Amino acid sequence: MSSMASRFAWIFAIVCLPGLANDQKTLPPVQVTAPAYTSHHGGYLISGDFKVDPRMPSIVFPSQPLVAEDVLSVEPVYLANDDYLVVQECASADCSRASLVRVWHPGGVATEIQNDPNRILIRHENKYWIWVKRLPLASAMGCSDCNDEHFYTSFEPFSPPMVLMPNGELAAYNREALLAARDQDPVPVKTQSHEGSTFVVTYADGSTVRIRRMHAEH
């Protein structure tokens, strides 16, 4: 497991437990109950309440746990040529094992989608996080089964957190380069801001992502 992944396992238990973040604040005689950076549309509370923990400056978390029937909107505005945008969720109680939810490469969404390439329907409450991994540019030269692909489109469904493991013919052909990149830390966040109820994050190499959570109001 990489150093980033090992730090993640115990830090996540602190920063993402339900009820610890964004507690109701009371200032008599005014009571503030609405979370920051929200709007209402079509029966949904739309929230940009995400954060980057300073102890893991590459990882974006929802400030409140995602629950069943939430919609996570992740829109890659721009991805650098060797960047892969990743959404993972915990696949074990201590988050030492993660499940791949979705991946984007500079050409678009790389993995299976439900309906919209930039929207993820949350099936169950869990811990989710968003990050960017830089992978070496894929070379298909001389690979008869790679179909001149330029980006990886197939990945191992389970891995340690913050580890992205391409598989298939193209990955096998680029095995040594991928092994060398596996334990490198994710791309760090350079800036983060809110545009209304949208969280906008820009990474050190210029990749930019817009993130929102849509929570049904019923």
Rank of each mutant, 00 (worst) to 15 (best):
M1I: 06
M1R: 09
S2M: 04
M4R: 06
A5C: 01
S6M: 14
F8I: 04
A9P: 02
W10T: 12
I11D: 00
A13R: 14
A13I: 07
I14Y: 12
C16R: 14
L17S: 10
P18Q: 00
L20Y: 09
T26F: 08
T26E: 13
T26H: 12
L27T: 13
V30H: 09
V30T: 12
Q31K: 12
A34G: 02
A36W: 09
Y37A: 12
Y37H: 15
T38C: 12
H41P: 02
Y44S: 07
I46R: 14
S47R: 03
D49W: 01
K51C: 09
D53W: 15
P54L: 04
M56H: 01
P57S: 11
P57D: 12
P57T: 08
I59G: 01
P65H: 04
V71L: 12
E75P: 01
P76A: 05
Y78P: 00
Y78L: 12
L79H: 01
L79D: 02
A80Q: 06
A80L: 03
D83T: 06
L85T: 12
Q88S: 14
E89P: 01
C90A: 15
C90F: 06
A91C: 08
S92I: 05
A93G: 01
D94C: 06
R97T: 11
R97W: 05
A98T: 07
L100T: 09
R102P: 07
H105F: 08
P106L: 02
P106C: 03
P106T: 00
E112A: 15
N115Q: 11
D116E: 11
P117M: 10
P117V: 05
I120C: 11
R123N: 10
R123Q: 15
H124C: 08
E125L: 00
K127T: 13
K127D: 11
Y128M: 13
Y128D: 11
Y128C: 11
I130Y: 07
I130H: 09
I130W: 06
V132W: 04
A138T: 04
A138C: 03
A138F: 02
A140Y: 07
M141N: 08
C146R: 03
C146V: 01
Y152K: 11
Y152F: 15
Y152C: 14
F155N: 07
E156M: 14
P157K: 09
S159I: 06
P160I: 05
P161M: 05
M162C: 13
P166M: 14
G168V: 13
L170E: 03
A172T: 10
Y173G: 00
N174Q: 10
N174S: 10
R182G: 03
R182E: 13
D183I: 00
V189D: 03
V189K: 00
K190H: 13
T191F: 05
Q192C: 09
S193I: 01
F199Q: 03
V200M: 05
T202H: 00
T202F: 00
Y203S: 04
R212M: 13
R213G: 07
A216Y: 14
E217D: 03
